[in-house]
């Protein structure tokens, strides 16, 4: 049962988006969020939808996977749609009991839903097309400037990648210990809450013991190979910008500029309902 958990949500495929430098994709996530809040009106969102659709098509990730990410925030979407729909003042269209639906309500609610959905889909492109290791690598480089302020960027990134690396190992360990205790008659499934919680002790203690043992083994192995933090450390696959990364940078800035220009233009020449 524990074997079925998939970690992160990386979808392995060979696409331009997968090959992009993680820093480009990190910046894209930020820019896309900014664009969703900078844009006002249906035209801006239409542009945002088209831009994201092109990226998703290029990434070769099935839309099904991207929509999966929305499942966890369904309640948030429904709630914000509901509140905006009923609580916005304006020209009343329908009225029943204490509720009234206004023209402005429909407009704001639908834009809100589109914004949240795009927000989640846009940022999930990053995690779907970047391996956790590339991601931490990218984060380390992108936030490298913080070293000036004595933020231990390398150490945090190293901790992140080790933690990620250890998750499958620990899951494996849990399975093993579970089986060993089951062979000694342990019962993890039946009984009330307290009994179940108590049944976890023979599982958790060996797990913690082994996690500490592994941590100290790893620390020794790293020291034995002269690991001494990030200073002067070189990489086997250093991150380098390629031409496609430069193009991607330019494209995303062009996109953000288009959104902002569109907004200024629409403010100067208001069009009904856009």
């Amino acid at each position: 049962m524990i074997r079925d958990i998939t970690l992160g949500q990386y979808y392995d495929a060979d696409s331009v988006i997968h090959r992009l430098d993680p820093r480009v994709k990190l910046l894209f996530s930020v820019l896309y969020i900014v664009s969703l809040y900078a844009g006002r009106g249906i035209l801006c969102f239409a542009l945002a939808i088209v831009f994201l659709a092109v990226i998703i098509a290029l990434s070769k990730v099935p839309v099904k996977f991207i929509l999966k990410g929305l499942r966890s925030i369904v309640i948030l979407i429904v709630l914000s749609a509901f509140l905006n729909l009923f609580l916005t003042q304006g020209e009343v269209l329908v009225r029943f009991w204490i509720f009234k639906i206004t023209k402005e309500g429909i407009r704001i609610a639908s834009l809100m839903v589109i914004r949240i959905v795009l927000l989640i889909m846009g940022t999930s492109v990053l995690t779907l097309t970047t391996t956790p290791n590339d991601l931490t690598d990218g984060l380390e480089r992108a936030f490298g400037f913080l070293k000036i302020f004595h933020v231990p960027v390398h150490e945090v990134a190293m901790m992140m990648s080790i933690a990620l690396r250890f998750i499958p190992i620990l899951i494996d360990e849990v399975n093993k210990i579970m089986k060993a205790q089951q062979a000694r008659g342990a019962d993890f499934e039946n009984g009330g809450l307290i009994k179940k919680a108590k049944a976890m002790i023979p599982l958790l203690i060996p797990l913690f013991v082994s996690a500490f043992r592994r941590a100290s083994d790893l620390a020794q192995a790293m020291e034995a190979r002269c690991y001494h933090g990030g200073d002067g450390r070189t990489k086997l696959h250093p991150l380098k910008y390629h031409r496609r990364d430069v193009i991607a940078f330019l494209l995303q800035f062009a996109y953000l500029a288009a959104i902002i220009l569109l907004r200024i233009f629409l403010r100067a020449f208001p069009v009904e309902f856009l």
Partner: peptide, 15 residues
């Protein structure tokens, strides 16, 4: 109960 199974490195089950 009737079949005792001792896994590899069984010392990891001590708690």
């Amino acid at each position: 109960r009737l079949v005792g199974l001792v896994f590899q490195y069984p010392e990891h089950q001590l708690f």
